[in-house]
Design a protein around this nucleic acid. Structure first.
Length: 465
RNA sequence: GCGCCCUUCGUCUAUCGGUUAGGACGCUAGGUUUUCAUCCUGGAAAGAGGGGUUCGACUCCCCUAGGGCGUACCA
């Protein structure tokens, strides 16, 4: 096992959305590629926004996606003592200071700065103040960030990025109630968890620079950063709940295969030459952070759908049945009967190439999932005219004596069409309607063999009435 | 406002100074076919704009435009 450690650190404010899922996937792919560890940490230091059920939603989403993590997930909140300890150490080292400025003073400062067209970065008067003058009042702990020189981050995706230190502020490490902020907590936790590679959204790029100052203050080594571009909605704007930023469980409910989801998400921003369709094993084998692109990608349902169809076709029938059963369970529908499971296996070849998502698989399986009589729906009804009923009656009589194999059936029906002086389609389509009540289905010959003679004759008799 | 990042077909992308700029999705014209789908064949479709550097730029540099992110006692 290598010493590579990656992590996914969501904040439990809602479901696991698609951007987070991709971040988790990239971290996971890299860890698995390297034979390292992939850890989970819940960023729950902000108790005002903490929602326990959101943590479960995140676990569920990860599990559905098939992204497994090593070791017990860590609650950041449980580590606040350690965070405070580091803050105190920074204080004694002179890398941080106590700031007694009130919220009102800070607001006033910023408003004035804006009015004067100066950067609204707060410059605390306590940065170099004599602590003897400190009031007996609540204070926050601020980082004493350098104001001269520059800070450079070498990023695996973004390359070398530099900021002038004057554009970075003295961020708050410990709130006035003594709880740690995200900035402090991530650094301390990533360090203590021995995280070697931080792969996260590029909305954190500036944070990397600010956080590096904390690392420096503590004399710790920086992890290797890879800031990946965010995913945009179909219209190019920021992903919102309106379009695409749905929780992963929404995609599960739509019936996409997890394997297809992993494939699609991996391909969004990452590439391995021209490969578009691949298995998760291949993605793990091929994954490399330096092949992640720098520009944001848009979410495209059409492509996801196509990939899902390809994965359905490529999935072994027994495994596919399992996916169907998992889906059925997730939708709180009654589980499949033994007979239905058998029919799925025997009919899978005919239905899997006609579906792109699991609900379509179930829809196409209607011809064996449903029960007699299979009354024709509106479109199908047009094929059951007086003339075609007569034709079907003559066919039914012949079929009573037929040998029920694919070859015999096909020969029999083709011969019948010839006798009736009809094209095969003119016989097959009414036959399909009589058998299923619908205009669309797998091959009639395949269905007849699968359904068996007795059932087929019964359905034909139903239709003749 | 300031800082940082981004910009190849409609979309996802390949290309790492020299290619008829390739693939995939979607679209489209056909073919196979008992419906639908699958499958097969063909087609339209791209380097944001302007300057440089170079024998030669999609590729390197600068500017402009457009977009994104950040600028919290949120994460």
């Amino acid at each position: 096992m290598s010493n590579v450690v990656t992590r996914f650190a969501p904040s439990p404010t809602g479901y696991l959305h698609i951007g987070g899922a991709r971040t988790a996937l990239f971290n996971w792919l890299f860890a698995r590629n390297q034979g390292g560890k992939f850890l989970l940490r819940i960023e729950d230091t902000d108790r005002k926004r903490y929602a326990p059920e959101a943590v479960e939603a995140i676990y569920d989403g990860m599990r559905w996606l098939g992204i497994d993590w090593d070791e017990e997930p860590i609650s950041q909140f449980s580590r606040i003592e350690r965070h405070a300890e580091v803050a105190r150490e920074l204080l004694t080292k002179g890398a941080a200071y106590k700031c007694y400025s009130t919220k009102e003073e800070i607001d006033a400062f910023r408003t004035a700065a804006r009015a004067a067209k100066r950067p609204p970065l707060f410059r605390s008067p306590w940065r170099n103040a004599d602590m003897a003058t400190a009031p007996d009042a609540p204070y926050v702990v601020r980082l004493k960030a350098p104001r001269e020189g520059e800070t450079t981050i070498d990023d695996q995706v973004q390359g070398s990025v530099t900021w002038k230190n004057e554009t970075l502020d003295d961020m708050i490490l410990l709130r006035s109630d003594g709880t740690p902020t995200y900035m402090l907590a991530v650094v301390v936790d990533d360090h203590d968890m021995e995280v070697t590679h931080v792969i996260r959204g590029d909305d954190h790029l500036t944070n990397a620079a600010r956080q590096s100052i904390i690392y420096k203050g503590m004399g710790w080594d920086l992890p290797i950063y890879a800031h990946i571009p965010l995913i945009h909605g179909p219209d190019g704007a920021k992903l919102s709940k309106r379009h695409g930023a749905l929780g992963v469980e929404t995609y599960r409910d739509m019936g996409y295969l997890p394997a297809a989801m992993r494939n699609y998400l991996a391909r969004l921003g990452w590439s391995h030459g021209d490969e578009d369709f691949f298995t998760t094993e291949q993605a793990i084998e091929w994954f490399s952070p330096d092949k992640i692109g720098k520009s944001p990608a848009r979410f495209d349902f059409k492509k996801l759908e196509n990939l899902s169809g390809q994965h359905i076709r490529a999935t072994d029938n027994v495994d596919l049945l399992q996916e169907i059963e998992k889906f059925v369970a997730s939708q709180h529908k009654p589980e499949l009967t033994l007979r239905q499971r058998e029919m799925f296996i025997s009919g899978m070849d005919g239905i899997k190439e006609r579906a792109k998502v699991i609900p379509e698989l179930i829809e196409i399986a209607y011809y064996f999932l449903g029960e007699r009589p299979f009354l024709p729906d509106e479109k199908a009804g047009h094929f059951l005219t007086t003339v075609s009923r007569g034709m079907l009656n003559r066919l039914t009589s012949r079929l009573r004596d037929a040998t029920w194999t694919l070859e015999e059936l096909e020969a029999e029906i083709r011969a019948f069409a010839e006798v009736e002086d009809l094209k095969l389609g003119k016989v097959a389509q009414p036959l399909r309607v009589a058998l299923t009540g619908r205009t669309v289905s797998p091959s009639v010959f395949d269905m007849m063999v699968q359904l068996g003679k007795e059932e087929c004759i019964a359905r034909l008799e139903d239709a003749s009435r």
